[in-house]
């Protein structure tokens, strides 16, 4: 039965359902137990599952990431929560240099079924060091999977898929979306990896994005519709694996494409999408792909500057008008 719940509740439901289903799953991270989660995602979980399965870690991201990898090597399925993905940088050696390579380097002997999750992204006026959009940098590493849920429904369905996956999965939850409500069915359902969702249908231009910037894409699409430009908005859902086929099919229909990515432009997911679409849709495109990315600066602290630095509806509208020669 669908009911409207917050994005954070959907994450919690996914973890609780999977922990009831599979005794090998446990949650480890900072403030996840007694404090009920720094962002209240794990509220009530200590009470239900006890301190054996919901564990407060010392402030030691590299430590609990490495511990999780070791536990996964001996048959468990850890969920490692980063209070913020910005803090995962100190754990880079474990999450990038160990987790995604262990199966490969051991010739298949040590699968690492682990989920690294937590909130991330800019836009909360938290200053540059706390406002990382790690997706482009991390997605560069083979051996991991990455999901970026757009709404509460996907937050639950993608996280459940992540927990059942036999590979390291990075789930990036936008801090700005945690309180956003959405329709979520009770009980079990999965959102498969590598299947993009068309969030809005349109015939004139394809807009592709992941996670929070999709709200700006949809906002832009509404105002562009008033101008007579109908945009198709595609939510990639997972960066690895990437459903480039759905995106490419859409571009073949619309002949124009704008990619929206809240990470920095250089060597980014936006750049990768543009490159792939240029190859796959070379004969379809009536203009080159245009990217709307964060400006190439650290996230500014001042509210107005940070909003200006990130992709927003205005920038997306301008990009769509430009790419479709409607400007």
């Amino acid at each position: 039965m669908p009911r409207s719940i917050e994005f954070r509740e959907a994450i919690r439901e996914a973890m609780c359902e999977e922990m009831r289903r599979d005794a090998r799953v446990f949650l480890l991270g900072e403030e996840v137990a007694q404090y009920q989660g720094a962002y209240k995602v794990s509220r009530g979980m200590l009470k239900e599952f006890g301190p054996r399965r919901v564990i407060d870690a010392p402030i030691s991201e590299n430590g609990f990431s490495g511990l999780g990898i070791g536990a996964a090597m001996y048959g468990l399925r850890p969920i490692i929560e980063f209070m913020s993905w910005s803090f995962s940088l100190v754990a880079a050696d474990q999450i990038l240099n160990n987790a995604p390579k262990m199966l490969y380097m051991s010739g298949g002997q040590f699968p690492i079924p682990i989920v690294f999750r937590g909130n991330g992204g800019a836009g909360g006026q938290l200053g540059s060091t706390h406002s990382w959009c790690v997706e482009s940098m991390y997605a560069n590493v083979p051996g991991l999977k990455m999901a970026i849920p757009f709404d509460a429904y996907d937050a639950k369905g993608l996280l459940k898929t992540a927990i059942r996956d036999d590979n390291p999965v990075f789930v990036l939850e936008s801090e700005r979306l945690l309180s956003v409500k959405g329709e979520v069915p009770e009980g079990d359902y999965l959102v498969p990896f590598g299947e993009a969702a068309i969030r809005r249908q349109g015939t004139d231009c394809t807009i592709v994005s992941f996670g929070r910037p999709l709200y700006f894409c949809l906002e832009a699409a509404e105002s562009l519709a008033a101008e007579g430009i109908e945009c198709e908005v595609i939510d990639g859902r997972t960066v690895r694996p990437l459903d480039i086929e759905t995106i490419s099919r859409s571009v073949a229909r619309t002949n124009y494409c704008v990619v929206v990515d809240e990470s920095w432009p250089f060597a980014s997911i936006g750049a990768e999408l543009a490159a792939q679409i240029h190859v796959l849709n070379f004969d379809d495109l009536d203009n080159h792909v245009v990217r709307v990315q964060a400006d190439d600066v650290p996230a500014p602290y001042a509210y107005n500057l940070e909003q200006e630095m990130l992709p927003n509806a205005r920038k997306i509208c301008e990009a769509v008008r430009a790419v479709t020669y409607a400007a």
Partner: peptide
Amino acid sequence: TQMLHAVGLAWA
């Protein structure tokens, strides 16, 4: 790096 994996193996 392996020291943390040992801790995780012991944990498991």
